[in-house]
Simulated scan of single mutants.
Amino acid sequence: MPNISQNQPQSPKTKNRSVRGLIVTMWIVFCAAFAGLFLFLYLVYNGVVGYMPPVEELKNPTDRFASVLYSADGKEIGRYFVGTGNRVYADFDEVSQHVIDALISTEDVRFEEHSGIDMRGLGRVLFKTVLMGNKNAGGGSTLTQQLAK
């Protein structure tokens, strides 16, 4: 004899309870996620999670370190600075194209091939570090990621 109760649709009251329970659960998850995000931002703002510099310092950073030039054997050749700030800021159009090309070739060879995250580089680091246990596998970060950091 076939089981008839399996083919019968749910009653409207049972259906409304399950929908209402789903909606309540979704609201609880949403509110918990919002509260967690708020708590995280609050902790970052107060320096508990990590240091967050003031907005004024981010807009106008002060660099008070001289540029140090080292020889190939690691000896300091000299320190270079101008004025009291020890740095000279230059606009992008004042920087030589050779300097830009050298930076890209040494730090991020595929700079113009990716959108900021080099998946091939991350895959290489993952493979060498995690699977092969090579601690000196090199970085997987791009110039974009270094700037964001």
Rank of each mutant, 00 (worst) to 15 (best):
Q97A: 07
K128D: 07
S71E: 02
V19N: 15
F38Q: 11
G133V: 01
G47M: 00
A72M: 12
V48E: 11
D63R: 15
N86P: 05
F65A: 10
F40T: 05
G121H: 01
I104P: 00
T25K: 09
L41A: 11
G83N: 07
F40C: 11
A32R: 03
K128M: 03
V19M: 15
T62H: 07
V99F: 11
R120H: 14
S71I: 03
P12M: 04
S141E: 02
E76S: 00
Q8M: 08
F30K: 00
T106F: 11
V44D: 11
R124S: 07
L143E: 03
A32W: 04
Y51V: 08
D101Y: 07
I100F: 01
G21P: 08
A148W: 08
E56M: 11
I28Q: 03
N134G: 01
G21M: 10
F65L: 10
Q146I: 07
K135V: 14
L37P: 09
H114L: 00
P53N: 04
K59T: 06
V68W: 04
Y70M: 02
I117R: 00
Q6H: 14
D118V: 02
P2W: 05
Y80N: 04
S67F: 08
H114W: 03
S141W: 07
F92Y: 09
G36I: 13
I4E: 05
A66G: 12
C31A: 12
F111T: 01
F127M: 06
I77A: 15
L147R: 10
L131C: 14
F127W: 04
P9K: 11
M26W: 14
Y51L: 08
K75I: 12
Q10Y: 14
G139R: 05
L22K: 06
R79M: 09
A72G: 14
S105F: 15
K13M: 09
N46L: 11
I117K: 01
P9H: 06
Y89C: 07
G138N: 00
N134V: 01
L143I: 02
M119N: 03
R79C: 04
W27V: 08
R17S: 11
L39H: 15
A72C: 14
D93W: 08
Y80T: 05
L22P: 05
G50D: 10
T84F: 06
F30V: 10
G133Y: 02
M119F: 07
R64C: 09
L58S: 06
Y42W: 15
N86Y: 09
E76Y: 02
D101Q: 04
G78T: 06
G21A: 09
G47R: 04
S11F: 09
F65G: 13
D118I: 04
C31V: 15
I77P: 07
P12W: 00
G74R: 02
P61K: 04
F38Y: 15
Y80D: 05
D118T: 06
S141K: 02
M119K: 04
Q146F: 05
V68N: 05
F40K: 10
R20N: 14
R87M: 13
L39Y: 10
I100Y: 00
R110D: 08
N46Q: 13
T142K: 05
E76F: 02
E112F: 15
T106A: 14
F127T: 10
K59P: 07
R17M: 14
I23F: 12
D93S: 13
N7M: 15
D101H: 09
W27T: 13
I100G: 03
H98T: 14
G140Y: 00
S71N: 08
F40Y: 13
P12E: 10
L41P: 02
D73E: 05
L131P: 02
V88L: 09
